[in-house]
């Protein structure tokens, strides 16, 4: 890991999650392990259905009822969150770990004023007076760049960008140590997205906050994160420092993903990965990327490649050193 001296806040070990469906068991995440240090911004990326949101939801006990953690531990400050009962989880949520959801427009309660929602969240988790809660909320609203005069607005009176800022303010209200942000800018315009990313970068400079940023948009990760985790079909295929991942990716999937990502700075040929992501009810044996991989050999079809680390750059590919 990049900086092992720093305190590990959250550690996920061998997480395996399945969803029960009529067609069979969907193996949504398998053998997922990673750590988040204090003050670190981690990006979790991959395409739809790769298990990134599933992993995030499990951290907060928010999996839908079909979902089940079959195996693994999630250690937060040394305790396994997965063993917590509802009461303990509720105490953890928002206070220690909070979440910013995709599509802020729908995540705020439309019948309550923005500031009231913050005050309520604060007073549920902390023993503070109404006045104190109000002051703290207003301060936060200011810090995310919203005019405090707008605090008493209802969500429909605010624009999409403002609502997303409010969601971030709401997530910060109890001073959590980790924010899980699931596609926080995906529904927003480019300029508003830039404003929100700027806000994240400011938070990084000003506080000790750790962020798990989940998005399919690699360029967003390139601009905000310290480390990146790439998932494919429920497994981690590569992790490493952001610059390593973008300049020297080693897993064929990561390579393809980056080369198919368009950029306005360079004249890239259009690239793509042929085929479709696998069906996770009956995933391919061996490396799950093998049916779409240009370099697959027999071993890739038979044995699952382990995630092996060298200088903090971990890759799950049998042929890592061959090219």
């Amino acid at each position: 890991m990049a900086d092992t001296k720093r305190e590990v806040f959250l550690e996920v070990k061998n997480l395996r999650i399945t969803y029960e469906t009529k067609q069979g068991k969907v193996k949504a995440a398998e053998n997922v392990s990673f750590r988040i240090h204090r003050g670190e911004f981690i990006g979790l990326s991959g395409e739809s259905g790769c298990g990134k949101t599933t992993t995030a939801l499990s951290l907060m006990h928010l999996l839908p009822k079909e979902g089940k953690v079959e195996e693994g531990v999630i250690l937060f400050k040394g305790e396994n969150i997965l063993d917590y009962d509802t009461k303990k989880v509720e105490a953890l949520r928002w206070r220690d770990i909070s979440m910013v959801f995709q599509g802020a427009m729908n995540a705020l309660n439309p019948v309550h004023k923005a500031i009231d929602q913050m005050i309520t969240a604060l007073r549920i988790h902390e023993d503070v007076t109404e006045q104190e809660a109000k002051e703290r909320s207003l301060e936060l609203i200011k810090s995310v760049g919203i005019d405090p005069a707008r605090a008493t607005s209802y969500p429909h009176e605010l624009s999409g960008g403002m609502k997303q800022r409010l969601m971030i303010a709401l997530a910060l209200v109890c001073h959590p140590s980790i924010i899980i942000a699931d596609e926080p800018t995906t529904a927003l315009d480019v300029m508003v997205q830039a404003q929100i990313l700027d806000l994240f970068n400011q938070l990084r400079d000003r506080t000790n906050l750790s962020v798990l940023l989940i998005t399919h948009d690699l360029s967003v990760l390139a601009e905000t994160c310290d480390r990146i985790i790439i998932m494919y079909a429920g497994r981690i295929v590569e992790t490493g420092r952001t610059d390593t991942i973008f300049t020297m990716p080693e897993h064929p999937y990561t390579k393809k993903l980056i080369s198919s990502f368009p950029s306005i700075l360079v004249d890239k040929e259009i690239d793509f990965i042929p085929g479709n992501p696998p069906d996770l009810i009956n995933p391919p044996s061996g490396c799950r990327f093998n049916p779409r991989c240009d370099f697959a050999v027999d071993r890739c079809r038979q044995e699952v490649p382990p995630l092996e680390c060298e200088n903090g750059h971990c890759v799950a590919c049998w042929r890592r050193h061959e090219f």
Binding site: V190, D198, D217, S219, A222, I258, S263, I264, L265
Partner: peptide, 16 residues
């Protein structure tokens, strides 16, 4: 302000 998947490129960002 369009995010780019390139690392270490200095860009003159105009944030409206």
């Amino acid at each position: 302000v369009v995010p780019v998947p390139e690392i270490g490129v200095e860009r003159n960002r105009i944030l409206l």
